[in-house]
Amino acid sequence: MGEPSGFEYAVRGDDVVIRHRGRVATVLRGERATRFLDDVESGDPQLLMARLTGDYRRGNERTAKEHPRNRG
């Protein structure tokens, strides 16, 4: 799986708006917005935004399902 990309965020008042490829993916408010702004300074912003929006899981579910250890 490749590195997450295409994310951007904007602070609007007390809210943080996260966009993925130009579309609003999520809006963080309150404590989540504050935590996000603290975490984005110390980590990889693209990965953090992908995890918050759920886009980090896309693309490898089918491959993992077919892996020999997961066949059951």
Score class of each variant (00 low, 15 high):
M1F: 08
M1P: 12
G2H: 10
G2K: 12
G2W: 04
E3L: 13
E3C: 05
P4F: 01
P4D: 03
S5I: 11
S5T: 15
G6T: 09
G6F: 02
F7D: 02
F7P: 01
F7S: 06
E8T: 12
E8C: 06
E8H: 06
Y9Q: 04
Y9M: 03
A10P: 00
A10Q: 13
A10N: 07
A10H: 11
V11T: 14
V11C: 09
R12H: 14
G13S: 09
D14R: 15
D15R: 15
D15G: 02
D15N: 14
V16S: 05
V17C: 09
V17K: 11
I18E: 00
I18Q: 03
I18K: 06
I18P: 01
R19C: 05
H20E: 06
H20M: 01
R21L: 06
R21N: 09
G22L: 10
V24F: 01
A25W: 01
A25C: 01
A25K: 04
T26R: 14
T26C: 15
L28W: 05
L28M: 10
L28G: 08
L28N: 08
G30F: 00
G30Q: 01
G30H: 03
E31I: 11
R32M: 10
A33C: 07
A33L: 04
T34H: 13
T34C: 07
T34M: 09
T34R: 14
T34L: 11
R35S: 10
F36K: 08
L37Y: 10
D38E: 15
D38L: 13
D38R: 15
V40Q: 07
E41A: 15
E41T: 12
S42P: 01
S42Q: 13
G43R: 13
D44S: 08
D44I: 00
P45T: 02
P45Q: 03
P45C: 01
P45R: 06
Q46Y: 06
Q46F: 03
Q46G: 05
L47D: 04
L48Y: 12
A50C: 07
A50W: 01
R51M: 08
R51S: 00
R51W: 00
L52E: 04
L52W: 02
T53G: 07
T53Y: 06
Y56C: 13
R57Q: 12
R58Q: 11
R58Y: 10
R58H: 11
N60D: 09
N60R: 10
E61P: 00
E61Q: 12
R62E: 12
R62H: 07
T63Q: 11
A64N: 10
E66W: 05
P68F: 02
P68V: 02
P68R: 03
P68H: 03
R69F: 10
R69A: 13
N70K: 05
N70Q: 03
R71M: 07
